[in-house]
Amino acid sequence: MLLQQLINGLTLGGVYALIALGYTMVYGILELINFAHGEIYMLGAYLGIIFLGLFTVAGLTAVSLPLALFLTVLLTIIVCSAYGFTMEKVAYKPLRNAPRLSPLISAIGVSIFLQNYVMLTQGATDKVFPQRFGDSGLQFLNVNMTYLQALIIIVSGVLMLSLHLFIQKTRVGKAMRAVAQDKTMAALAGINVNGIISVTFIIGAGLAAVAGIMVASYYGLVNYYIGYIVGIKAFTAAVLGGIGNIPGAMLGGIILGLVESAGAAYISSEYKDAYAFIILIVILLIKPDGILGKNTEEKV
């Protein structure tokens, strides 16, 4: 039972962590809570269903399911990244020097827009993922880990590791860190700050897109409002780990996933969604810098 919850929690936590990365990267660079980031994840879930549906109709799924899935994921990442990129250009970039609350309100506007945009184009009813993956999987120590769960955990892990390496080792990754530390200095050093900010949104959206597809396939159903609650949870994960801190987001996501599945199993599943909010409020009030965050004093 405990081990089973651990696996369920890890699956959920991996997804939260992928979305949390988007929040944390954007916050690290712009100090902006990208409130609409959860909607990118929702778009990802829908696009996954739409593209895989197309491939099913076109017969590609029957020929080669892995190829169809691969193309679906690829297309979804591309389209979601384009949405993330556009969102930044239209709703945040013009507000970079505005009062602090303006971009947050703008982000809420984007979030409401995207939800209703999907509701109006795709309908208000639940969408079903075109492919069922079944409950077969690995049995060990009295627990059942479906292949899909294993896949989600592995994909999340691989993506997080790649992102970590990307940021530590590549030129673009180093530029991202430089921009996060000091935009003016980075610009003086010849870094294209606007370009780096766009890259950050694109990567964040790509990760959220993958998370969206994985959740759509895991639960089999999606709706236009799933982005809000998952977005808040992922944001909680980012804050829990220390916002702006990339390993922190991963850690926070996994902790939140574990707490939620344990809480639902042992305390009450009715309040399942409340755990994240309670953790969020408690962590903000007790240690707003999160688990891995540094304590900083603002200099006047």
Partner: peptide, 27 residues
Amino acid sequence: PALRLRGDYLAIVTLGFGEIVRLVLNN
């Protein structure tokens, strides 16, 4: 407790409070 937080964090805490109130009313 929430006023110690910086602007956007305060906003998120009030959001969380709103959701908790709704969940309590619901349950």
